[in-house]
Amino acid sequence: MREPCFDNLLKVLRKQVPDRPTLFEFALNDNLVEILAGERFTHGSHEDQPEIFIKAFKKAGFDYASLRGSAFRLDWGEQGAKHSKSLNEKSLIYDTASFEKYTWANPEDYDYSRLERARQFLPDGMKLIVIGPGGVLENVIELTGFDNLCYMLADEPELVEAIFNNVGERLVKYYEICASFDTVGALVSNDDWGFNTGTMLSPADMRKYVFPWHKKIVEVIHKAGKPAILHSCGNLKEVMDDIIYDMGYDAKHSFEDKIFPVEKAYDELAGKIAVLGGIDMDFVARGTPEEIKKRCMAMLEKGMEKGGYALGTGNSVPDFIPVQNFLAIISCAGVDIKL
């Protein structure tokens, strides 16, 4: 089993060539984590058992384990049990009265000790990567419903701004707290911004309501001397320069073949921002292990020439990705395991 070495990922995030092929995933599904770790989560709050994540990520050849910093999340109301959900499922905030009635959770009130407790389980050279409890735009949409947000943008822009401010300042605080732990090597700001055809709000509204908060998130992460990774799905071509030059993210994660295939993205972005993952989810879900290996090897080769690339899926490893296909990806980075 290869030993984790976070410096490899750090080199990738600094747009350099790592010493060996490096892997990156935003998240692995819990079932796969248990299989890789060889043990089951023993109680409800999986992320309070960082040792299982650490074992699983180490076994699969990652230089880090990813988890949330605490149980902090805004109250989105009751969540459906299905795999799929509508962005219009509900609307907790739809006018000034409902905004004033809403109880805002505060990140300072939560327990982050899992980030310290992880120290005893982290092998030398391995770090944690903290992911967020949904992003700025995602949280606002969860609170308002997408259609309602669109109508409020036209009818009540001041209310919209107040909602974004309440969400944004809490997420900045969350990242500031998480970045202060020295077990944490990097942080992922996860916030889906796009549809297939463009951003969910106009680029002008993204710049007005969403991006200033991301700029602040990146600032607090950088202030702690750590890299900031943006995980954001959808067509972001029109705001890519904002991501790189205005917000100052070190790496971009989440790519889709239909929008911006990772090979093309890497050709355009290498040297400007690190490119992480990108092997299209549909391709990974429906391709054969041989097809997946062929594409991953070609992408790794490309990435090892100029640097700033870590191999992985375009999004994450949910439970509908066949385990053999995930193993095919990591095998390209020299991790051969049998499960």
Binding site: C150, Y151, L153, F195, M200, P203
Partner: peptide, 14 residues
């Protein structure tokens, strides 16, 4: 042509 976005479409449709 990506000159307007979903929010503008929804408000026009309303």
């Amino acid at each position: 042509a990506n000159e307007v976005y979903v929010p503008e479409v929804l408000v026009a449709a309303r």
